[in-house]
Design a protein around this nucleic acid. Sequence first.
DNA 1: TCCCAGGTGTCTC
DNA 2: GAGACACATGGG
Length: 217
Amino acid sequence: MKAALHTPPLKAVYRALLREFGPQHWWPGRTRLEICVGAILTQNTAWTNVERAIRNLRRARALNLTTLHAAPLPQLAAWIRPAGCFNVKARRLRALVQFLVDEVGGDPTRLATGDAGARRAQLLAVPGVGRETADSILLYALDKKSFVIDAYTKRIFSRHGLAKDHETYERWRELFTRALPENRNLYNDFHAQIVRTGKDHCRKVPRCEECPLRRFF
DNA sequence: TCCCAGGTGTCTC
DNA sequence: GAGACACATGGG
């Protein structure tokens, strides 16, 4: 393994963020299925737009596997339109729903059983489910210990020298999982804290003077 | 008007 | 393997 430029005490970083923001109580979804749907819809999209799309699905009483599975692709696209890339995401959503139907008989709870590594491989084989989406589903919908790396993680920690932004997803994930105890609640809230930090401090300011992480780097 | 947002797949070299 | 590009809406 290549050495990081700096290896900050990530547990202490998390504690600092927790003090700053408080527990984030993620994911903002009511059911396992809703979290899976949100994970697809949020790809390269602001969460406010995802909420609009989910609201459309709920209003249409389509936020269930039976309706999602039966819906024609154009209907699916119309419901999720506010989330952007709606034709692409409709196909991805359809593929994920098909996987859930085929693999666990339409019961996402059954997906939560079984080995995390094997489930990750299965999810990555679904068209439109990449590493971040798979890890989000594993962690937040299936309660598996799978750390999520996203754009905020790379942006924030590359600015502080943890690793280069262009390093691979798996390399970033390895940096965090090696430095942290394997704990689902920690993985869950740490990622949420990172997103909160990104939204509050790092959107447009390259090196925010008020960044709660500054003292660690 | 332009840039960005909790990515992924495809194509080209 | 890396980089460019398409997908597309809504907010600032």
